[in-house]
């Protein structure tokens, strides 16, 4: 494996608790056996804010992340605490362009349960890791999987996300390994 070309950069956006990018980097190394480094924080993504929706446009956010050049980084995962959206959806936990270079994960909707109650940090970190690994799957061109016991199965809500495992099914694992070796 060529470590240089498969290096994943974790980019905190704005004020993000230090443990979050660390946990994400650890999951990338532990679950996918990929080297991950934490990059210097990006101050903000004010240009992506939509005043009508009080949310950040995830499409513009991804464009911003893709426009930043980092040496020896293959894929970038942005980590943020702001509320993200795409025009048709009320919100998203995270987003990635299929086969693209950048993905973004938001903690905004992961920190509470469906009744608005704050969740323990262990749960929030696990949720963030799941969203990030799922989006990273898309960056390596994996599609949504029909298997409910696969990380690539689509999770539209917190309940689905909590039920989702932290690993790919054997087909997605195989596909991921193939895609990684080709990238």
């Amino acid at each position: 494996m060529n470590e240089k070309t498969n290096r994943i950069g974790i980019l905190p956006i704005g004020k993000v608790p230090e443990i979050v990018p660390q946990s994400i980097a650890a999951h990338i190394s532990g679950c996918l056996d990929l080297p991950a480094i934490i990059l210097p924080s990006l101050k903000n993504i004010a240009g992506c804010y939509n005043e009508n929706r009080f949310q950040y446009d995830v499409g513009k956010t991804l464009q911003t992340l893709e426009s930043i050049k980092f040496k020896d980084i293959d894929k970038i995962i942005g980590v943020s605490t702001v509320d993200l959206y795409i025009p048709i959806f009320a919100y998203v936990f995270g987003e990635a362009k299929q086969g693209g270079k950048a993905a973004v994960v938001s903690l905004y909707r992961l920190e509470k349960d469906t009744h608005g109650k704050k969740q323990p940090s262990s749960i929030v970190l696990e949720r963030a890791a799941k969203v990030m690994l799922h989006e990273l799957g898309h960056l390596y061109n994996l599609f949504h999987c029909a298997d409910e016991h696969c990380l690539m199965h689509f999770s539209g809500g917190l309940q689905d996300l909590d039920a989702s495992p932290l690993y790919f099914c054997r087909y997605c694992s195989k596909y991921f390994l193939d895609a990684r070796s080709k990238s």
Binding site: R53, Y85, P87, I88, F89, A90, Y91, V92, F154, S155, G156, G157, D160
Partner: peptide, 11 residues
């Protein structure tokens, strides 16, 4: 009715 929740589209 847009914008809709992601899980609604999934349903």
């Amino acid at each position: 009715l847009k914008p809709f929740k992601p899980d609604l589209l999934s349903l």
